[in-house]
Design a protein around this nucleic acid. Structure first.
Lengths: 316, 316
DNA sequence: GCTATAAATGCTCAAAGTGAGTATTATAGT
DNA sequence: ACTATAATACTCACTTTGAGCATTTATAGC
């Protein structure tokens, strides 16, 4: 094995002369009541964000600083979402890099600082909430407009392709609704001209609040990631108060997933995975049989480092 | 897709004055024979990489350019891995951002360009290959050294914590081996002083080739991601030739996962998911009953946009 | 042709996990 | 007491997995 000395004196590459700008963007989530919310700034038209500067110790800490400064709100759990470059975004023709993060927090209704504001994320994506069944929007607007978009293609094959893509991502025809396809749906709607990334006068066909630049796309990425993650990691608990009833927990998951769950089976799942433990307390607030209050078993974070296998393994 | 007008005139933030350097790094994977390989440069001590420059259209295309220039090898499937900032990495005190990608390709044994070279990834992580059972390394070095490391702690609780962490990530004691924890294992070994990120004189305790800067850590991230992904997305096929036998396919998955699979159940899985279709050809090369050759059913990419649910949903 | 060897392929069976209920119990408000 | 609202308990068919045995179809060497 060849030996060799450290790289501080021998960098792999000389950095490019001009340098580029880097921006940090946060999708900061909290569940308030039974609705999933995100932190916004600028009249609810932008996500909290700011430049990454050389004074920041790391990307994460840079983001934390910005978010706390802009929203007065500390972030609990954080994970990186995606990094993208956009030549058009930078100043003076410089290209810019945006690094987005997903953050989870408990809402603690402090006085909202500056122009920051919690907003129901379904304000931006009304078609993503299927808790009350498929929104009427689908039959009224989404399906016919996508059909129309598909039919605009010239070749028969292209029409079929477009329609199949639309049917799959929106759960039309025989396809089942898949709540994880948030980003694909947004991109398809954008491609079909049913939403506009940043408003510019013309009315969008679909309801739903727009955002500056590509923030709505980033939000879609965050929602998709979170909807996927709650299924195999105990991240919901980052959004719950210290003690909660199982129904509260279920309502939170439903809020995030945008669909209703089977109560008994949900409980069975939670219990058999030993995710929670009783606090001994009960809640009498809802008027019904009192609900036992539980807390998250922190130990599972250590015990189960990861999800289970899906490979058909051979004998141990 | 229409370009946004919005933000060019009204950027969300004025970019920081100095700008920073951005580097693109690739974990480029191919399966050669029955061994997983990665593309390396610099005497197999670095991953292909290069600065992101304003001439690049996007991060992806910038990376493609660099990799093709350095290795003469085009990339098929690509996905982003992780972005990190390292103050010590930049030039002249500038901070630098590194954006890493995972790329999959079929090896086509062209004359290797420049100093690029395919390398078995287990050269860098010998403890990750469990296809021939748990490596002797574990009983001989890993377990005792980690025990020793745990025992260095002062408090009893800290010793127990350390040991439990080691046992979980390495599948010691009663815990099962989890092939996905590549990064966690590397980080723990680093913390325990059993590997050194870049060698500088002192011999590391464990065998395994080192790399420049933090490239070995990035490689660990890529392997972990790929091991997780093969379980729920048909990405293995990106690494297979156009026609292959089911055993070849199994051997490839085993190479990546570092564990052996149950043949009959593996086949059942592949077939019931309708991932492949017969080509009508057979392979007589192995000396045994000839194997039918299959090809990947491209259609599944369209049909199944995503993985299945795990939530206990309510009636449709 | 016969035999050893190497796979491919077919089939079984129990255990565990899921989906979709019905039934019962405990409170608060009227 | 009666009703509304939940919490909680239990059932049952069906599917998916893990593990293994058995059979079939080839090649290579004798």
């Amino acid at each position: 094995m060849a030996l060799m000395t450290m790289e501080t004196k021998d960098p792999l590459h000389i950095p490019a002369g001009r340098g580029i700008a880097a921006e940090l963007i946060a999708v900061l989530v909290a569940v308030i009541g039974e609705a999933p919310h995100i932190m916004t700034i600028r009249d609810a038209r932008a996500l909290p964000s700011g430049p990454f500067e050389s004074s920041h110790r790391s990307l994460q800490s840079g983001l934390r600083e910005w978010v706390e400064q802009q929203t007065g709100h500390p972030i609990g759990y954080m994970e990186q979402l995606y990094t993208f470059a956009d030549r058009d975004r930078g100043h003076e023709g410089k290209s810019a890099i945006s690094i987005s993060y997903l953050g989870l927090t408990r809402e603690e209704s402090r006085a909202d600082a500056r122009d920051s504001e919690w907003r129901d994320w379904y304000d931006y994506f009304p078609w993503e909430d299927h808790r009350k069944g498929t929104p009427e929007l689908f039959e009224a607007v989404v399906a016919p407009r996508l059909k129309q978009w598909a039919d605009e293609s010239t070749s028969k094959a292209a029409r079929a392709d477009r329609w199949q893509r639309a049917a799959i991502t929106f759960g039309l025809d025989e396809f089942a609704w898949n709540e994880e396809l948030v980003l694909q749906r947004y991109e398809l709607l954008y491609e079909a001209g049913l939403v506009t990334e940043a408003e510019r006068g013309q009315k969008p066909v679909l309801p739903g609040r727009a955002m500056l630049a590509d923030h709505r796309r980033i939000l879609a990425t965050g929602i998709a990631r979170l909807r996927a993650k709650i299924k195999y990691r105990p991240v919901v608990f980052e959004l719950m108060p210290p003690a909660f009833s199982l129904l509260q927990l279920q309502r939170s998951v439903e809020a995030l997933a945008g669909r209703l769950l089977h109560k008994q089976n949900f409980r069975r799942l939670i219990e058999q995975q030993e995710l929670v433990e009783e606090t001994g307390l009960s809640s009498f607030e809802t008027g019904g049989r009192p609900a036992k209050l539980f807390r998250f078993r922190q130990a599972v974070l250590a015990e189960r480092a990861a999800a289970g296998t899906k490979l058909p393994l051979l004998r141990p």
